[in-house]
Nucleic acid binder design. Structure first.
Length: 294
DNA sequence: CTGGGGACGGGGCCC
DNA sequence: AGGGCCCCGTCCCCA
């Protein structure tokens, strides 16, 4: 399926894992100290309860959806087990994930020793940040530089709540704000949700299929899809290849065909460097086993 | 297994 | 707001 920009994605890293809230086992493996974190900014004096899930080297199998790649680190005692943040302004500073694109810097667990699932979550978090879901509130914070005061904070771009740590913000995004700050339009025929009514209406057409072919009765969601389908009956091929005499009924298919004339193939296997004209061919190639590590 | 064509889906953009 | 079109993409099939 094509990537849908307006569909609210139910990605695992954005989905609250409510079961974890009640899990005592989780508490055994993951440090979840709870302490009131006072945001000392003049503009933001709200008191937030903040939790800091930590990845513990001694519990390699405990990373869950609730755990972010974030480890409270004492700069003077980097090898020490992460400790409960104090309530004082001199509490341990933490390094946001994006600081050096190496979430386990200064932690006990080298990146290359991670399980694939853990590594995947790291990349997901990176994607989240690149997508603008997580917004550090200042350049200093972006660089991971602990500020001179506790005013350095991470701010939710939706509700502007500020958190002292990256993980605090990330949890806020996971558990609360995602569903409170947006109004989603839900499809009554399926469980898809859209960020705009127009997008939802467009999607509903894929259920109602109002455009019906008079020749074969096949139904389509939009008129131009029907037009393209009718060409399969008429044989009309309005899209011609400038390099050869071949013509196509569909512009996308012409575009794919043009790749066959290109000496440069866009998609390259990371393992064997073989190139492919389509990403689907590369995917097939990788799934066939050329890139066991990918 | 690979390469390519056919058919089609869905969001964005423009009018 | 809605239609038309574009772009990007997937799935299936076949040589």
């Amino acid at each position: 399926m094509p990537r849908s920009f307006l569909v609210k994605k139910h990605l695992p890293y954005k989905k609250p894992n409510y079961g974890m809230l009640d899990s005592k086992e989780h508490e055994l493996h993951v440090s979840l100290p709870e302490s009131p974190c006072s945001v000392s900014s003049p503009q933001q004096s709200t008191l937030f309860w903040e939790t800091e899930p930590c990845l513990m080297a001694s519990t390699p199998n405990t990373l869950t959806q609730m755990d972010f790649f974030h480890t409270p680190v004492s700069k003077t005692q980097p090898s020490q087990t992460p400790s409960v943040p104090s309530e004082s302004p001199e509490r341990e500073h933490t390094f946001p994930v994006q600081a050096a694109f190496h979430p386990f810097r200064d932690s006990h667990k080298p990146l290359d020793t991670l399980r694939p699932a853990d590594l995947q979550q790291f990349h997901q978090m990176q994607e989240l940040r690149v997508a603008g879901e997580l917004v550090p509130s200042s350049p200093a914070t972006l660089l991971g530089i602990p500020g001179p005061s506790s005013q350095e904070r991470f701010e939710c771009f939706d509700c502007h709540k500020a958190y002292f740590t990256f993980s605090g913000l990330a949890k806020h995004r996971q558990l609360h704000c995602e569903w409170q700050c947006h109004k989603f339009f839900s499809c009554k025929y399926c469980d898809k949700e859209y960020v705009s009514l127009g997008a939802l209406k467009m999607h509903i057409r894929t259920h109602t299929l109002p455009c019906v072919c008079k020749l074969c009765g096949k139904a389509f969601s939009r008129p131009w899809l029907l037009q393209g389908h009718i060409r399969t009956h008429t044989g009309e091929k309005p899209f011609s290849c400038p390099h050869c005499s071949r013509a196509f009924a569909d512009r996308s298919n012409l575009r794919a065909h043009l790749q066959t004339h290109s000496d440069i193939k866009k998609y390259q296997c990371r393992s064997c460097s073989k190139t492919f004209s389509r990403i689907s061919l590369l995917s097939k190639h990788e799934e066939a086993g050329c890139c066991p590590m990918s």
